[in-house]
Simulated assay, not measured.
Amino acid sequence: MQPAASSAYSASSASTERSATAPRRTATLALAIAIPLLFAACGKRETPPGAQPGAEAAPGTPAANVAWQPYTPVLQHVYLAYFGRPADPAGLEHWGRQLAAAAAATEPAALASQYRDNPGVRAMLDAFANSTEARETSGSTREFVAGLYRNLFQREADPAGLDYWVQALDKGVISRSDAALAIMLGAQHKDPGTLASKVAVATRFTAMLAARPDGATLYRGEADNRLGRAMMAKVDGATDPAAFDTEMRATITQMEQAQ
């Protein structure tokens, strides 16, 4: 049985965390402000995350695969943060090859720093920020921030942290995209372990689908996205990705049945 989602911190723990992490939150907000308009909304793109690649170099060749595959972890981070689900195989390859062509960094923090000066990085991040799925899975400011903590760390945001980010967003100090990146990069305590488990499971799931002849078309549409989100909601820092294969196969079976 997989571990259940972590519960919110107790009142006493929240109080301790407020005093211990306030400087870290201030530093994290400074990071968000220092990278202006990261993930900024610059207009809706015609090719949303997960879409089939367009007129590009033929996929599947050894050289192409070697070029884009190092971007798998950073793209899984982005899919998890914005959508709470693993990348679909077609979307992963499409955006991986775009980042490779742009000579983008393969780590989240380094990729973020390239936003303003690298058109390929900017195009990819803008596409996620402006996608229909991102808009439909976010809601109010409070729901958006709470969702980020669940998507990335599988826990409820502590009250002080939740209020901190909601106020910063509502006052227009930062954008939602700035907050998403800052929260992801500011992971602390048990959060980095949980995020690492989620990225490992998401990577394993996408690879499992990609190995199937129908993998490019099986995982597509909102019904499949919901199944992916439900699966990832069962992953926390104690999850063994290799032992999670049964759950992944069950999710794939549900996707088959939904066709």
Score class of each variant (00 low, 15 high):
206 T>P: 04
144 F>C: 04
170 D>T: 06
218 L>P: 11
148 L>W: 03
186 G>Y: 01
113 S>R: 12
144 F>V: 03
150 R>A: 13
203 T>A: 15
205 F>W: 12
150 R>C: 03
216 A>I: 10
204 R>A: 15
148 L>V: 13
219 Y>S: 11
163 D>K: 09
196 A>G: 02
203 T>K: 06
193 G>C: 01
137 T>V: 15
194 T>H: 06
178 D>L: 01
149 Y>R: 10
212 R>F: 08
218 L>A: 14
150 R>W: 09
215 G>V: 12
203 T>Q: 12
197 S>Q: 13
218 L>V: 13
208 M>R: 15
171 K>I: 00
157 A>E: 08
203 T>P: 08
211 A>P: 07
131 S>I: 06
111 L>F: 04
184 M>N: 02
152 L>Q: 11
116 R>L: 14
114 Q>S: 10
209 L>G: 12
122 R>D: 06
190 K>M: 09
150 R>Q: 14
206 T>W: 05
139 G>C: 03
158 D>M: 02
133 E>W: 05
156 E>I: 00
212 R>M: 14
202 A>K: 08
114 Q>F: 09
156 E>G: 09
160 A>E: 11
178 D>G: 10
181 L>T: 03
201 V>Q: 09
210 A>N: 13
219 Y>L: 11
136 E>I: 08
172 G>L: 04
116 R>K: 10
143 E>I: 00
168 A>D: 00
127 A>R: 11
153 F>V: 07
136 E>A: 12
111 L>C: 05
206 T>R: 14
121 V>P: 12
142 R>K: 11
175 S>R: 07
181 L>Q: 04
218 L>W: 11
135 R>Q: 14
125 L>S: 03
124 M>H: 01
174 I>S: 02
160 A>D: 15
115 Y>M: 08
169 L>P: 08
182 A>L: 00
179 A>W: 05
215 G>P: 11
116 R>P: 00
204 R>M: 12
126 D>E: 13
144 F>S: 10
160 A>W: 09
110 A>H: 05
204 R>N: 12
194 T>S: 10
192 P>F: 05
188 Q>W: 03
176 R>W: 00
158 D>E: 11
110 A>G: 08
141 T>S: 15
166 V>E: 03
216 A>G: 14
167 Q>Y: 00
159 P>S: 07
183 I>V: 10
163 D>L: 04
150 R>M: 05
153 F>T: 05
156 E>F: 07
117 D>R: 13
149 Y>I: 05
112 A>C: 13
214 D>I: 11
188 Q>G: 03
216 A>E: 15
205 F>Y: 15
179 A>G: 04
207 A>V: 06
189 H>Q: 09
164 Y>N: 02
150 R>N: 06
143 E>D: 14
180 A>P: 00
132 T>L: 11
207 A>L: 09
208 M>N: 07
158 D>S: 14
168 A>W: 00
151 N>E: 02
212 R>N: 12
137 T>M: 08
193 G>L: 10
165 W>F: 05
126 D>L: 02
155 R>L: 07
154 Q>S: 15
168 A>M: 01
143 E>A: 14
187 A>I: 01
115 Y>V: 04
216 A>Q: 15
144 F>L: 12
169 L>D: 09
116 R>V: 05
141 T>E: 10
200 A>E: 12
110 A>N: 06
115 Y>F: 15
206 T>V: 12
111 L>I: 03
209 L>Y: 13
219 Y>Q: 11
121 V>F: 10
120 G>H: 07
170 D>W: 01
